[in-house]
Nucleic acid binder design. Structure first.
Lengths: 145, 145
DNA sequence: TCATCTTATTTAACATGTTAATTATTGTGA
DNA sequence: TCACAATAATTAACATGTTAAATAAGATGA
């Protein structure tokens, strides 16, 4: 029996893309008037949650590749959303910190973002929402052994 | 009680990104020697499954935005993976068809791709794999009412 | 039939994803 | 201390994602 691939209508990669699009669309709409992208929103979220971070940790927690983060950080610095400082011990390292202006964007949109998240949780139901997060985590190479 | 966002470590968008990365990484590795991208692979998959398609349907089934598909089609035409013909009735419309060279890439990698898919199915188990696909579909705006 | 609306597609502009090469700094061993 | 390996970050080059504007062809109604 020759091997077969699932129909593209039941393809896991395509399902993941579409789900991501479905989830991000309302968040992008929310951010439209702020002029920041969903990636920049993610950077702000992580910095707001964890405080100042070195670039590697930030990239990891925001799920961004290094070259992307370099460019995004440049943009965000110019916008005054973050500040970047070199480590005096190891001058290769940098630390990135959220500014008041950056924190204000988070504060101004937390309520709406929380409503969007709550909407998806309702769509699936609490239990299935958690199930989904668990299943997705098991596909994440950074979380598996 | 002020609204709160979930920790970024339990964020649905980030979980979706990471899962997608986990799933696509081995597929990208597989395609590395062919010189085609995962998006081009998706176009070939859809064309191979459904036969010649008009551009709109192809974009929809491959989950690509129109401007992306325009560029991708140009690249793939130059590589000889697809052919593009105008509809003589409605000269706005185009049809895209896979070539023998394109089909050969599918044929040459079906077995390996099927093994990769089977690996993920094993990781989660059949039942949970199907559960995951169903939950993801419920986040897809194109599939909901 | 002509102005206009609609639809299909492309182009433009900017941001990010991805891989490879490069630069800057630090660590190491002869 | 000097050549060299390792690490952190950036740059480069190309492809795609995203939104808005532009083009082209077809449909419509006065």
């Amino acid at each position: 029996m020759p091997p077969r691939l699932p129909s593209t209508s039941r393809s896991l990669p395509i399902a993941l893309i579409r789900a991501r699009e479905g989830v991000m669309a309302p968040i992008r709409d929310m951010l439209a008037d702020t002029g920041i992208t969903e990636q920049q929103w993610r950077v702000l979220r992580v910095l707001s949650e964890y405080g100042p971070l070195d670039t590697s940790t930030l990239a990891d927690r925001a799920s961004l590749l290094f070259p992307s983060l370099t460019r995004i950080a440049t943009t965000m610095r110019e916008k005054g959303l973050i500040t970047q400082t070199r480590d005096s011990d190891d001058r290769r390292r940098q630390f990135i910190q959220i500014t008041d202006a950056g924190q204000k964007i988070i504060d101004d949109h937390t309520a709406q973002a929380a409503r969007i998240v709550a909407g998806f949780r309702e769509t699936l139901g609490d239990a299935q929402y958690e199930t989904l997060l668990d299943l997705l985590a098991r596909l994440d190479p950074g979380a598996r052994g």
